[in-house]
Design a protein around this nucleic acid. Structure first.
Lengths: 330, 330
DNA sequence: CTGTTAGCGCGTTCAA
DNA sequence: TTGAACGCGCTAACAG
């Protein structure tokens, strides 16, 4: 249907008997071209369905108008949400997004970074795989991780999010707390947990910490194996963890929130569809994404920390301990 | 840390007193270069950390080794899963993936296609937004939709998937069926539903069809509003629909699978975490993705239809009608 | 058989 | 407004 050779700037130039430079100028509004001629050129370009070749332009200008986005694992539901936010922020700036998945592997991550730079991305947005630091590359990099990460550029205020959760649970009257703290080497998880602990300790409450992967499965295992009798509430550092935990403890006859309150973190889509819907903390992904893009676009030179929001649903309630004297089902 | 100007082929050439052509030949193993010289060149390239400039190479060769992936909405959980599969398949072939989201908007979709072509992608993988046809572009396009779509290149056998569901429900003894058929203009949904209906009708069962969006919310509304008394089982064309439905009917006191069996379609991650875990059909995303890539890479010229798999979980059971005479709770 | 020269591709940019 | 150089890797034609 369409010609194999898309028309070039030269074709237009020849047809109108002008130079390629003039066409280039006219089409981009740069330089000085008489308005009449500019109009003709635009018309002819339209007629030919001319589309500038990004590749050639990139070669000449050194700008590809493409950013690379590197996520740790796009299979985990938070990252598609991030990717979507970043894609939107990029589109607003006329940038395309080259996506890569490090699949949880630091080597893969390094490889992808190099690869993307070689492919001429103007900048990189990296959500680092746990426990890794980003090696400087030849392009601006915006790291999205935790405020504590060296070189972090955009992040949610995970620590404050942890505080929100803790205050919520304290306000409900919980004093015997289990924290599903996630992986020990995750800075994000650490921030979340420290935020919680800080508030709990100020209230004279010492929570029990339990580390694990950040997955649904890990939560499920903990829910099956932990001794729940000592706790009236459980705060997880990730929704996935909380959801896995919820399902496992329900099978043991522990009902949420009657026997135990439960909170997550991230407000994944799941959080509202599990039963009971999960009280959790939502990140402002749009804001984080936008700041990351603004940074690599040179619009700002500072890093941004963005507030999170407590989302209260039905998985938290006052402890039944008040009524039942601390006994749990089973 | 690193020099701003990545070293070029010329730099190596100058340093070794040879021509750029020789360097190019040596580095890519083409042409004739004595093995000794080739080795030296490779060493020097290594020492300088030389990385060929993809942009320049792309301009000269007309190949960018990049494919564009266009999804309808990356917020919907099936598409990240697809994206991941496609990214893997692309990586195996040394291709990078430029990702775009049409956000359910046909115009956006058109724009993205043009944009990606202008950016020099070698090929496009498009999962079309509902009810749209892909306009031919100047690069190979692999459309992933339904076997019935004109120009479809890779798809799961949605129709057979529908048959699997129907046979499963029939085998359990269900004869009064509700089908949540999804959007009327979705070819994928239509295939799934037709597969079901075909089997049901052969068994002399006429299911009731209910169209709606493919979303969790739509399922939820249907679950609240439909009159359930006539049905012992409900088969949804999408997991999201089934899950929304499940939660709504549970609130009405209808329990699954005791009062009503329920099936979904796609085997999203959610399907196993809702309660009860959902009986559904799983697509072989890897196979579909791989075929799409194989097609645009010219490895195959045919379209591929890939089998789906029934995943039986706890949302389906024999109808209680046998025991209770067809009465439902409420 | 080994290596070089010259110029391509295409939009941008600068001196004229 | 323009001609010509430019960016950088690739490649056909050519020379040693």
């Amino acid at each position: 249907m369409s010609q194999a050779r898309p028309s070039s700037i030269r074709e237009i130039a020849t047809k109108l008997g002008v130079s390629t430079a003039t066409v280039s100028n006219a089409l981009r509004g740069t330089g000085r071209v008489s308005s009449g001629l500019a109009e003709q050129i635009r018309l002819e370009a339209d007629r030919l369905g001319y589309v500038p070749d990004h590749t050639a332009r990139a070669l000449r200008t050194g700008k590809s108008n493409t950013v690379g986005l590197l996520v740790p694992n796009i299979g985990q539901p938070l990252f598609p949400a991030f990717a979507q936010a970043i894609e939107r922020a990029a589109k607003r700036r006329g940038l395309a997004v080259l996506i890569g998945d490090s699949q949880g592997d630091p080597q893969q991550q390094d490889f992808e970074i190099r690869n993307m730079v070689a492919r001429g991305v103007d900048a990189l947005i990296v959500i680092p795989t746990r426990g890794t630091t980003i090696t400087q590359a030849d392009v601006p990099i915006a790291v999205i991780d935790s405020a504590a990460t060296t070189g972090n550029i955009a992040a949610s205020d995970h620590r404050e999010g942890g505080r929100l959760i803790a205050r919520h649970l304290l306000a409900l009257g919980h004093e015997r707390l289990l924290i599903l703290a996630g992986p020990e080497n995750s800075l994000v998880a650490r921030e979340r947990v420290e935020g919680m602990c800080e508030v709990f300790r100020q209230a004279g409450v010492e929570p029990a910490l339990q580390h694990s992967d950040a997955t649904f499965e890990a939560g499920s295992i903990l829910g099956r194996e932990l001794d729940l009798r000592h706790f009236t509430a459980c705060a997880a550092a990730y929704d996935a963890l909380a959801i896995g935990f919820a399902i496992a403890v329900k099978e043991r006859g522990c009902s949420i929130p009657e026997d135990m309150s439960l909170t997550g973190f991230d407000d994944l889509m799941w959080a509202q569809i599990v039963s009971p819907p999960l009280t959790t903390v939502r990140q402002d992904l749009e804001a984080v994404a936008n700041h990351a893009l603004a940074f690599v676009a040179g619009e700002t030179g500072t890093s941004g920390i963005f507030p999170t929001k407590l989302v209260v649903r039905q998985s938290t309630a006052r402890p039944s301990a008040f009524a039942k004297g601390g006994k749990h089902a089973e």
